[in-house]
């Protein structure tokens, strides 16, 4: 206990002295429930190493109480800042207040909380609707005014990525009367279901001859669907255009093989913008925006997919 108080006071002292560099930052991660989450962890650690930051990592294994305990421990250790990817939106007020009292800035990664914006420095995240819109806009340009019947593989019914990515895509193709979503079903974000549902789409749409494009809410479903298209004797990427979201390594393989056409990146690099914002804040007290939107970058076959695959394959996806 004494040790902790001592450590805390040392930390406060060092903060007061405004020592730059060699910062200590705590990172409370949700867990490793998906490949993307694992990649986010890897990228965050890489980013910290590049910037010479001492990153204290804590895996909450999907439990908020673990996260709150981790945050309290970070506060007690007197870290310079805290990154947290909150597992749920509610119940953060008191621990965020404790951090504020200790004058430790908190940055939210990837997900939001229901607390007052005063309690955290900023939030870094992607805009799910925007991602869908980028995919839709790509399809509008790719269709080039020709008639295009689209089938859609939705994410898990009722989940916010499924709702928002659907909404964004519809916004993206709004106004293009040549593009029409003819079938839309959930593929539960999984390869198996993506393949199964795509098979039924192909059956229902004249063996696939009536389908011009596939829009999948994530790459995994697209990878499954690509196999279904191939097994039906069609060429994915040519007979049926494939656009999806996430930019996981396997979709770059498909892009390189010409079997997929485009993917919108949900970057695992949330930490980069967060560290940038913190550096500016520590340097001269610059207050960042309350929400920093990551770029939803579009990758096509022209963007060196083989190279992108190599760059990503070891990130833990």
């Amino acid at each position: 206990m004494l040790e902790r108080i001592l450590m805390a006071s040392v930390a406060v002292f060092s903060l007061g002295a405004g020592v730059a560099g060699a910062q200590t930052i705590g990172f409370s991660q949700i867990g490793s429930e998906s490949g993307w989450r694992a990649a986010e962890t890897t990228v965050t650690m890489n980013q910290a190493k590049e910037r010479g930051i001492d990153l204290r990592f804590s895996d909450a294994q999907q439990r908020q109480e673990n996260q709150i305990a981790a945050l309290r421990s970070f506060i007690a250790q007197g870290v310079d800042a805290i990154l947290v990817a909150p597992v749920v939106a509610t119940g953060w007020d008191s621990v965020l207040e404790e951090a504020a009292e200790a004058e430790i800035p908190v940055v939210l990664l990837d997900r939001m909380v229901d607390s007052s914006p005063d309690l955290y420095l900023t939030a870094v995240g992607s805009d799910l609707v925007h991602e869908g819109r980028v995919a839709g806009e790509w399809l509008v340009s790719a269709a080039n005014g020709e008639e295009c019947r689209v089938v859609e593989l939705q994410g898990t019914t009722g989940s916010s990525p499924a709702i928002d990515r659907k909404k964004g895509f519809e916004e993206g193709i709004a106004g293009a009367d040549n593009i029409e979503i003819v079938r839309s079903q959930t593929g539960d974000f999984t390869r198996t279901r993506g393949k199964e549902v795509m098979e039924s789409f192909l059956q229902a749409e004249n063996g696939g001859a009536d389908i011009c494009a596939l829009y999948a809410h994530n790459d995994d479903m697209a990878v499954g669907a690509i196999q279904a298209i191939k097994e039906a004797g069609l060429k994915p990427g040519e007979d049926i255009l494939v656009v999806s979201i996430d930019a996981v390594p396997d979709i770059f393989q498909a892009l390189a093989a010409g079997e997929a056409n485009a993917t919108v990146e949900l970057t695992p690099n949330m930490a980069g913008p967060a560290f940038d914002a913190l550096e500016a804040y520590f340097a001269d007290g610059t207050m960042p925006e309350k929400f920093i939107q990551t770029e939803s970058k579009l990758y096509t076959q022209a963007d060196d997919p083989a190279g992108e695959y190599e760059a990503r394959k070891d990130l833990g996806y």
Binding site: T192, K195, V223
Partner: peptide, 16 residues
């Protein structure tokens, strides 16, 4: 069969 079908082993979702 499930693994061969999607040419990959999805530990989270296979047989869920």
């Amino acid at each position: 069969i499930a693994t061969a079908d999607i040419r990959g082993a999805d530990a989270n979702n296979a047989g869920l």
